[in-house]
Design a protein around this nucleic acid. Structure first.
Length: 419
RNA sequence: GUAGAUGUAGCUCAAUGGUGAGAGCGCUGGACUGUGGCUCCAGAGGUUGCGGGUUCGAGCCCCGUCAUCUACCCCA
């Protein structure tokens, strides 16, 4: 029999990192709630069409990375590859537009993409994200960006960089695309194979190509700022103004274009150099056209998504392996010798637990010496020792593991002595 | 989907084509029959990823396969 292993691209979060995970999740929750974002939990699978229409038929995610299958009712189902389209679907389906606007929600949960795993990339990974729907104010873009930064700041994470860009809207982006095509067409031969293909389909992608020659060509291209329409341009100014008001440092980066079709106007990424080739901790932007694309009324919205595993990786590099270890948290160990004492110890352990004292006991019939060793490894503060002598005298020995000091405590006073 | 690297004990790694595949750490026990950390001793633990091939002989060489890692594409 061959041993069953976890499927490719999945990991067990155990035993090294649950501590960091819990800290991260708690930080996300408190930062979001502090800014008026409520939790939303959407299904882990959705109708395939949601992502085809929402994320975009021509994106890599939809083209080749989705976990799609037919269920027993012949429906095409997809494990969610991202969180935004489901939230918008939920907003529309639950008529959240009928309540006070904007609707601000956050989520934490698993996402699935069928890709080759590498550093910072898994087939099942966890994202936290926020979405603010129903308002087009640039202040909301800035708020969303500030939330992401705040999460990292609260965790004491350093060395990340915020990159900001605007990719315009359906009015002005086509003009920019057109001029990119015109300018790049003159240099088709110098572009890499991928970019030659991208040129007609989505010329913006040439901007963030990692190929050196494409990069140097891209540098010569005019930035999109010169092509933004009045509306987009004003909006972008509003965003930068708000960010400056918060003293948030960012870099203007005309090369970030994002791989999902639904983005409009503001797009941003938070990157960290400690992540290898996949250097984005998180990213997001505005998606004013998505609700309409999903058959709802036009609804302006903005949000981000960020990778938990990637944040954990950076935090652990900074703090060391042991930092995330989930200590058992046991404070008292009951060591016993002899059958009668062991039964008494078993009962005592449960009594102590009932009184809120975290307690553990030996289950391997070990010698006293070994029980002491084990108690030491657990890191307990006190060990309660019972043998035949103690049973006869109706008391237990309580040993302080830090000082080595031992006292005799009558059984009836044990709870008080250990509290 | 493509490319490269790597698969030996729970972990990190040794072993010129040649005896019964070793070490450190960890685990279990003992020295100390009822007292942890330090020290010393002992023990358990392996289908050398899997399947073929070459050879008198393969952990080592060759082929295939699977897995992991890294990178491309793209993204969290």
């Amino acid at each position: 029999m061959t041993r069953i292993r976890a499927p490719r691209g999945t990991i067990d979060v155990f035993p090294e990192t649950p501590g960091i995970w819990r800290l991260l999740e708690e930080t996300v929750r408190s930062v979001c709630r502090n800014a008026g974002y409520a939790e939303i939990r959407t299904p882990i699978f959705e109708h395939t069409e949601l992502f085809q229409r929402g994320v975009g038929e021509s994106t890599d995610i939809v083209e080749k990375e989705m976990y799609t299958f037919l269920d027993k009712g012949e429906r095409s189902i997809t494990l969610r590859p991202e969180g935004t389209a489901p939230v918008v679907r939920s907003y529309l389906e639950n008529k959240m537009w009928a309540g006070p606007q904007p609707v601000k929600v956050y989520y934490i949960g698993p996402m699935f993409r069928y890709e080759r795993p590498q550093l910072g990339r898994l087939r099942q990974h966890t994202q936290f994200g926020v979405e603010a729907l129903g308002a087009s104010s640039p202040a909301l873009d800035a708020e969303v960006i500030s939330l992401l930064i705040r999460v990292y700041q609260c965790l004491g994470l350093e060395g990340f960089v915020v990159r900001l860009n605007s990719i315009g809207c359906s009015k002005c982006r086509p003009r920019y695309k057109e001029s990119l095509i015109n300018l790049l067409s003159k240099h088709v031969d110098e572009l890499c194979g991928d970019c030659q293909r991208r040129l007609l389909r989505n010329p913006l992608r040439v901007l963030d190509c990692k190929n050196e020659r494409c990069t140097s060509l891209a540098k010569e291209l005019p930035p999109i700022f010169e092509y933004l329409c009045e509306d987009c341009s004003q909006h972008f100014d509003g965003v930068t103004q708000c960010l400056k008001a918060l003293n948030l440092v960012y870099e203007l980066d005309p090369t970030i274009v994002r791989g999902l079709d639904y983005y409009t106007k503001t797009v941003f990424e938070v990157v960290h150099s400690g992540l290898g080739a996949q250097d984005a901790l998180g990213g997001g932007g505005r998606y004013d056209g998505l609700a309409e694309e999903l058959g709802g009324t036009p609804t302006p919205a903005v949000g981000f998504a960020a990778g938990i595993e990637r944040a954990v990786q950076v935090l652990q590099d900074a703090a060391g392996e042991e930092a995330g270890r989930d200590a058992c948290g046991i404070s008292v160990f009951v060591a016993a010798m002899g059958d009668e004492a062991k039964l008494q110890a078993f009962r005592m352990t449960h009594t102590l637990r009932k009184h809120g004292i975290s307690t553990d006991i030996d289950y391997l019939d070990r010698s006293l010496r070994s029980q002491m060793k084990y108690a030491d490894k657990l890191g307990v503060k006190k060990v309660v020792i019972i043998g035949e002598d103690e049973l006869r005298g109706d008391y237990a020995i309580v040993r302080d593991m830090a000082t080595g000091e031992q006292t005799q405590v009558p059984f009836c006073n044990l709870v008080k002595a250990l509290t």
